[in-house]
């Protein structure tokens, strides 16, 4: 085996982005074909990212929204005097 798993793992995130040189990419793909462990790492990373991106972003709480403008205006007045 050319490399140990930890060394491959360091490159897995780059591999998912497609940002590595073709030679290393081929080497990683060959390794993924025979190493269950690294394959699961890639799947985990990919799926975690997908699921997190799919989630709805949290919305600004109404209570904060309500007081925000007043707070900003007050600080603005302190700074610019108007």
């Amino acid at each position: 085996m050319a490399r140990k798993c930890p060394e491959y793992i360091e490159n897995l995130s780059d591999y998912l982005d497609g940002g590595i040189d073709p030679e290393l990419c081929a080497e990683i793909e060959a390794h993924l074909g025979e190493c269950n462990n690294c394959r699961i790492m890639v799947d985990t990373l990919r799926q975690t990212v997908t699921l997190c991106r799919e989630g709805k972003p949290e919305t600004l709480p109404a209570s904060l929204e309500k007081k925000l403008t007043g707070l900003l205006r007050e600080r603005w007045r302190q700074k610019f005097g108007k």
């Binding site: 972003p57 949290e58 919305t59 600004l60 929204e65 925000l68 403008t69 900003l72 205006r73 603005w76 610019f80 108007k82």
Partner: peptide
Amino acid sequence: GDFEAFAKLIEANKQKVYAFVR
């Protein structure tokens, strides 16, 4: 020194910045 302009900039960005911070 125009507060209304600043408020508009905040208005346009607050939701996105909040989602990031959350």
